[in-house]
Every structure is written in C-alpha cells, then in structure tokens.
Design a protein around this nucleic acid. Sequence first.
DNA 1: CACAGTTTTACCCAAATGGGTAATTTTAGG
DNA 2: CCTAAAATTACCCATTTGGGTAAAACTGTG
Lengths: 203, 203
Amino acid sequence: MKELSTEEKIVQAAKEVFTQKGYAAARTDEIAVRAGVNKGLLQYYFKGKSKEKLFKAIFEEAFLKMITRINVIFESEDTVEHKIELALDAYFDLLLENPNLPGFIVNELHTNIHAFVEEIMQKPNRPNPMPLLMQIMEEAAQGKIRPINPVHLILNVLSMTVFPFIARPLFQRLVNVDDATFMDMMRQRKAEILDFVKHAIKP
Amino acid sequence: MKELSTEEKIVQAAKEVFTQKGYAAARTDEIAVRAGVNKGLLQYYFKGKSKEKLFKAIFEEAFLKMITRINVIFESEDTVEHKIELALDAYFDLLLENPNLPGFIVNELHTNIHAFVEEIMQKPNRPNPMPLLMQIMEEAAQGKIRPINPVHLILNVLSMTVFPFIARPLFQRLVNVDDATFMDMMRQRKAEILDFVKHAIKP
DNA sequence: CACAGTTTTACCCAAATGGGTAATTTTAGG
DNA sequence: CCTAAAATTACCCATTTGGGTAAAACTGTG
C-alpha cells in the first residue's frame, strides 16, 4: 500500500497540514513528523524557503484541481440540464476524495497574503462561463427551461455542491454526525441537488 | 461619525484583523495600528493573554450572530415557503452587513485549535431543526410541496445564501467584478434564491 | 490646580519558528 | 564490497511574535 518515495511522503504530509491548518498555522515541524522524517529532509528536497515552496506547489495543484473541474460545466456539447449533471458528477468525485480542498482554497484566497496567487489565477486554465451563460439564455428563450438569471443558476449549483464541504465542521457538530455518516449524506446529495435543480428550472 | 471609545476602537480593529486573516495570521501589532493606538493599550484594556481574550470575545459574537439567525427558520408559525422567505431576509441582512463573517467562522472551525469553541457550541442558542424538518415532511405528505429530503432542502437554502460570501474572493476574480458590483449582485440574489426554491419545491 | 484615568514611549523577555549547516550513519545498486 | 545517494543527528542562528513593564506625558473634571 505504502509505496511512496520520501519526497512524495513529504509532499503528502505538507498537503495534509496545509489544507487542515492553512498557511499561517502550518508548522514545518509537523510536516516533517507526519511524513515520518526529520526536518533536515525538508531542506534536502526543498532547498531554500522550503515552507513557501511546498505551499506554492500544493496550493497550485489544489486550485487547478478545483478550478479545472468547473470547465466540465462549459465544455461539453449538451443540454443545460445534462451539463449540470456532468458537472455534479465531476465535482462530487473530486470533493468526496478531497473533502477539505475547498475550505483550504477559500481560506487562502481570503487572507490574500500570497502574491503568487495572482499568477495562478491568470493561467491558461481560466474557465470561460460565457458559452454556458448564453446557452442558458437560449434554452430559456426557447422555452426549454424556465427563464432564469444564468449567473445565479450556476452559482446555485456550485453553492449547493461545495458549501457543505466547507461548512462541514459546523454542520457535523450541529446535527451530530460522524465522518462516515457525513460522507454518506454527501453521496446521496448529488442526486438530491440534480433533482432540486431539475424542478427549479423546469418551464 | 466616529464616537467610539478607545476600547471599542480596539475591539473593532481586532474584529477586522481576525475576520480578515484568521487567528493564526492575525498580528496584535496590526490590531493596535488599525485601532490607531499603541500596543501598550491592548494590555491596558485586556490584561493577560490579550490576543486570546480579544479573539474569544469576537468569535463568540460572530458565531452567535450567524447561528442564532438560523433559528429564524424554525421559530415562526408559518408555511415552509414563507419561513424560507423570512430566513432569507434575516440572513441577507446579516451577510450584507458582515460579508466576511461566514468565512471567518468556517475557517476557525476548520482549524480547530481553540478548545473553547466546543463550549460555545453547547450554549443555549443551539438551533433545533427538528420542527422544521417535520413540517417539511408534513407539507410534502399533504401535497403542499413536492416530496423532498428535508435535510437537503434546508442545506440547499443555506448553501445558496452563504456560499457566495465565502467564495467571494474567488468569485470576484473569476468574473472580474468590484466590491460594489458584488454587493449589488448579492442584493438581487435574495429574490433569485427564493424564486429558485419556490419552483423547486412546487408539487 | 490637583489628581485619577488614559495614553504614549521605550524598552525588555522568552518562546516559537523558519531556515540552515556540517558531520555522520544508513541504504541500495553496480 | 564500495560508493553515491538518502536519511539522520545535533546543533546553530536571526527574526518574529505575544506578552509584558515601568515611567513619563497627557487629559479632563471636580
């Protein structure tokens, strides 16, 4: 099972610590401990500004993971409804595997202390919502779906999908469910959202 | 306009810094600077563990603000649909005035380094979703609304309301809107969500 | 004015932290 | 077996940070 190289173990540990605690609260010592190695190796593999280097790599990966999935909504040549279904598939796959990715990203974007975030934002992966926006308006005009503000529709789908993972700690305490139960609920949720949206946009 | 006592100015500044940067990244120096006073005064007004004391006070207030609003959804003696409308009113009022409250709370709950958070959670204000859950099922049984999982319905409303404020930095960069425009969009959004939900739960 | 309360100034300290190095030992492949 | 790469050990240092103090200066009010 564990066939990770030391470097990979370090990256993996850094991912855990950064995504759980955020940059400011992350401790390089803890990264080393979780990786099962000593601090010296962080220097060995990431010479110079090891904390920052690790963070950059991890944040960029996480960010691209999240952001490129949005493109799924736009790329296909399908109906609005089916595009939403595909988007939900893609996003829930990602989120169930990486439950604390969104919280991490949102957190670091909120406390915008990292200048390089700007660079990442300008990368080629920028999603272009325009085609889908237009398509929603077209289908609305054709009476295929109910007239609706397309920006808010997209935002609605994204909100219902991502928010529970961000509010997970709060939610779990309020309704008193353990991790496994939470994950089960989220697996159900995909179908619930699709159902909800379908009815909401039905003419 | 500015009739704040020094102590209030400090609390206000602390609120800004904590909600923007989170506990770990918050610097007491910055709090003093923003309050327009010197660090000595933090000791004068909050002797002993000033950072922690300030944080506790601020977090608890913020948390209760957010959490007690949820009760609006449950308390009234109304139809489900109208309860949702009232909840949206209450929540949008709060969010438009305190746009970075949810991000702050979610962030601090995520990096659960503060033991006292547990205490706060156990306070009398705990919302009890059961009545509304039952009511949703009743109305569904009576055919007043479409059959729907009540937990997910509530989560849907909350998600669509709160998420945009949490994802605000990301959203604003992706669609390139300034602060004023964002706030305008959010003001429209309340009506959009209500409309969306109404159609989604219509039998 | 006198005086208590407030604010500033100018320091200090201990601990934590990120970053780093040099020597040594362990490990695996040729 | 021998060697280079990998990993460990045991340090060090500069900086930041939270926390703190004591004395001086300022302020308003009785």
